[in-house]
Design a protein around this nucleic acid. Structure first.
Lengths: 110, 110
DNA sequence: TCATTATTTCAATGATTATTGAAATAAATA
DNA sequence: TATTTATTTCAATAATCATTGAAATAATGA
């Protein structure tokens, strides 16, 4: 992964509302959630939510599909896992090991 | 983890220079690296590096110790792993599983 | 002490970003 | 067609952040 891609994705997640949206979608998994339901769950104004969904989409962290008059948003787990891997890449490769440097128990429910 | 903590850490990582510094320190592991060596490796002005190290420190992602006239910086793996876990927490707990929703091979060298 | 090396702080500038209210687009139903 | 529902776009404002050059602090060695 290019560092610019990682920065783009981290920037998208580095905002309370976008992070809350992303985590909500991660919980939901492949089913996804319509925009209105996300807005209701997080008490966000529709236009504000739209602004933040655009940011997450542009970063490649979520995808959307039209379903009638609803737009359903889902997390992109490949993008997420790619980012997590990038952050821990070559961990301790050039120096001393660290006891806390261990694979986290990510995504344990899947 | 409180969402504000996660946002603070993501914000710290969401900048090319800080992300490069962090990844360099992750490679180095527990040994850490003096500020000047980081600056040389990444071709950053000392004051610019100091600004970014401050950001990473304030977010709790790195720690520092004085060694003579050097200041040695090291990654905080607990903070990093806590953040990674937070991003994948309750993955697919409320909806359909996703084939790509699997633990990444983090930190495989440790 | 004086000079050198390492790192941090400060102030000014320019750029990016979130928020708000209002309006526009798009699909479904009466 | 007209109306309602769902979502997005737009424009203005306010706030935050990175960069630069210069100066300050701190530790070492001559």
């Amino acid at each position: 992964m290019k560092i610019e891609t990682a920065v783009t994705r981290l920037t998208a997640l580095a905002q309370v509302h976008r992070l809350a949206v992303f985590r909500l979608l991660v919980r939901k998994g492949a089913d996804g959630m319509p925009a209105g339901e996300i807005a209701a769950a997080l008490k966000l104004a529709p236009n504000a939510l739209s602004f933040h969904l655009k940011g997450l989409s542009a970063a490649g962290l979520i995808t959307s599909r039209q379903d009638g008059r609803y737009v359903i948003y889902s997390p992109d787990f490949k993008a997420m896992n790619g980012l997590l891997d990038y952050l821990t890449e070559n961990c301790c490769a050039d120096g001393a090991l660290d006891a806390a440097c261990a694979p986290p128990q990510n995504c344990q429910d899947c």
